[in-house]
Amino acid sequence: MHTPDRLRPPSRTTLGLALAGVMVALLTSACSMQQATCGGGEYPVLAVGSAGSACVPDDEEPPKGYARYPEGKVPEHEGDKWDTYWNTRTLDEKGETIELPDEN
């Protein structure tokens, strides 16, 4: 059996492919690490007339004082577009979007 006197270093292509694979793994895992607004089998609801939200089982209606988020404006993960949007807004008793008062 023949052993080489020295090992060849990996080629640039091999290193580039390995680095690209690591980057793809990191980027795709970052999405899955976002905290979901609610757990499986639940949906988020918004407090009416005030700040706050809760999670309700899929087979139940929102409790008194809460409403479903408007269609297309439902937060899915903490810090996503709609989670940020609803930090400064809520719904009134008529289901209209209103600004929350400043907490100063």
Results as ranks from 00 to 15, higher is better:
10 P>D: 04
16 G>A: 15
10 P>C: 01
8 R>P: 14
98 I>Q: 04
36 A>N: 15
35 Q>W: 01
67 A>R: 11
9 P>D: 06
42 E>C: 06
29 S>H: 00
17 L>K: 12
33 M>H: 13
48 V>E: 15
22 V>Q: 01
22 V>A: 08
70 P>Y: 07
2 H>R: 10
79 G>A: 09
70 P>I: 01
93 E>V: 10
89 R>P: 15
43 Y>L: 13
12 R>H: 06
61 E>T: 13
15 L>Y: 14
75 P>F: 00
2 H>C: 00
31 C>Q: 10
104 N>Q: 07
102 D>Y: 11
28 T>K: 01
46 L>M: 12
6 R>M: 01
59 D>K: 05
7 L>C: 07
64 K>G: 06
73 K>W: 00
90 T>F: 07
5 D>F: 03
27 L>D: 14
17 L>R: 03
66 Y>M: 10
71 E>T: 10
18 A>L: 02
82 W>H: 00
23 M>F: 08
60 E>M: 15
51 A>K: 03
93 E>G: 13
98 I>C: 06
58 D>T: 07
73 K>H: 06
6 R>P: 05
96 E>G: 14
49 G>S: 14
65 G>V: 11
77 H>V: 00
2 H>W: 08
18 A>N: 07
36 A>F: 10
93 E>C: 11
100 L>H: 08
41 G>M: 07
57 P>N: 08
74 V>T: 01
62 P>D: 07
33 M>I: 07
8 R>Y: 08
74 V>Y: 10
86 W>L: 14
83 D>L: 02
59 D>P: 00
6 R>Q: 11
29 S>M: 06
104 N>I: 09
85 Y>R: 00
10 P>V: 08
89 R>S: 13
56 V>Y: 01
30 A>I: 05
71 E>D: 03
46 L>R: 15
55 C>P: 08
48 V>C: 12
95 G>A: 11
38 C>I: 00
22 V>W: 02
12 R>A: 01
61 E>Y: 04
64 K>N: 02
69 Y>A: 12
102 D>L: 09
77 H>F: 01
63 P>I: 06
13 T>K: 12
101 P>Q: 05
8 R>F: 06
103 E>Q: 05
88 T>E: 15
94 K>V: 04
74 V>D: 06
91 L>Y: 12
89 R>T: 11
70 P>V: 00
23 M>W: 10
42 E>T: 11
82 W>N: 04
29 S>Y: 01
79 G>L: 07
61 E>V: 12
80 D>P: 10
20 A>D: 07
15 L>D: 08
2 H>Q: 04
89 R>E: 09
12 R>T: 04
63 P>E: 02
7 L>G: 05
63 P>V: 10
37 T>R: 14
29 S>V: 06
93 E>H: 15
102 D>K: 01
20 A>R: 03
10 P>E: 04
4 P>L: 02
91 L>E: 15
81 K>R: 07
100 L>Q: 12
80 D>T: 13
39 G>S: 13
1 M>C: 07
46 L>A: 08
90 T>G: 12
49 G>V: 05
45 V>Q: 03
69 Y>S: 13
100 L>A: 05
67 A>Q: 11
53 S>F: 02
33 M>P: 04
72 G>D: 00
71 E>V: 09
38 C>T: 05
59 D>V: 00
31 C>G: 13
95 G>I: 03
59 D>N: 09
78 E>I: 14
82 W>R: 02
84 T>G: 02
46 L>T: 12
25 A>F: 09
21 G>M: 03
